[in-house]
């Protein structure tokens, strides 16, 4: 088995694609504990990319670096570059708030604002940023809820509390909320881990619809999920990117022994 750091990720026979995001030597730490140890990765535009690996491999931290959420944790630091449309989001001139509006995020546990109605939740990103026009908000709410395939289920009870919905509906509400600010990229951090299989299937179906308009990155430790929805998959282990490839090839014919052991369940 070759040590992971000797792998030249760029030397891949991947078909050419246009990258939406590219990271160069991206490192992330909590205090003195480095959890991402230099990630070089190109994320294709309008595709679904899965970030997969065992717990503690740094996959969640990786996506949280892509919308600059990682740095909000006290003691957390980031080094290296992360390019969004070719511009480094960690450049001094860049306001993280702008980045977060262009790179939306859906979290592991559905987290609607408990004191807000369904409607207010969807448009929270707009109202909190000072958008007031009633018509604009209503139009955005409907468009986002339709995009999240939630409209038909909630259109008659938009004034109800977001917490009154089922777990799967709450998660789609959170997706609608993220879509309402019109991001280019959607980060999904294990979005189905708190959901039952039916709700999971709905979210996965939704993702494949959304990828025509958005670049989606999904963190998952569920290999079946990665193989079902993702066009590309990166396998992370101990803070390093072990392998990145088209999903089908990565699962059928992994190059790295580590990857193979992981997908065949011989990890231990």
């Amino acid at each position: 088995m070759r040590p992971a750091e000797e792998i030249d990720v760029s030397d891949r026979s991947l078909p050419p694609f246009h990258e939406k995001i590219e990271t160069r030597g991206l490192k992330a730490s909590f205090g003195s504990n480095m959890v991402l140890k230099g990630i070089d990765l190109r994320i294709p535009e309008n595709k679904i990319t899965a970030v997969m690996g065992p717990s503690g491999c740094g996959k969640t931290t990786f996506v949280r670096c892509l919308n600059r959420l990682h740095e909000l944790t006290p003691g957390a630091t980031v080094e290296g570059e992360a390019l969004l449309d070719g511009k480094d989001i960690y450049d001094k001139s860049v306001d993280p708030v702008d980045i977060r509006r262009r790179v939306g995020m859906v979290f592991q546990k559905p987290n609607p604002f408990p004191t807000m109605s369904i409607f207010s939740n969807v448009v929270a990103g707009l109202t909190l940023n000072g958008v007031r026009g009633k018509e604009v908000l209503e139009r955005t709410a409907e468009r986002s809820l339709r995009a999240a395939y939630l409209w038909d289920e909630v259109k008659d009870k938009l004034g109800n509390s977001g917490a009154s919905l089922s777990g799967g509906q709450q998660q789609r509400l959170c997706i609608a909320r993220a879509l309402a600010v019109e991001p280019d990229v959607l980060l999904m951090d294990e979005p189905c881990s708190a959901l039952d299989p039916t709700a999971t299937a709905k979210i996965e179906e939704l993702m494949t619809m959304l990828k025509h308009d958005y670049t989606i990155i999904i963190v998952t430790h569920n290999m079946q999920q990665a193989s079902r929805v993702a066009d590309y998959t990166g396998f992370f282990y101990l803070g390093k990117l072990v392998e990145f490839d088209e999903t089908a090839r990565l699962f059928e014919n992994p190059r790295e022994e580590l990857t193979e052991r992981y997908i065949t369940g011989k990890f231990g």
């Binding site: 995020m105 979290f107 604002f113 909190l128």
Partner: peptide, 16 residues
């Protein structure tokens, strides 16, 4: 998680 949800929507910290 609520704080992060708001920040992830591009809401500045003071408003969050």
């Amino acid at each position: 998680s609520l704080r992060e949800a708001s920040m992830a929507l591009g809401v500045p910290r003071w408003k969050t």
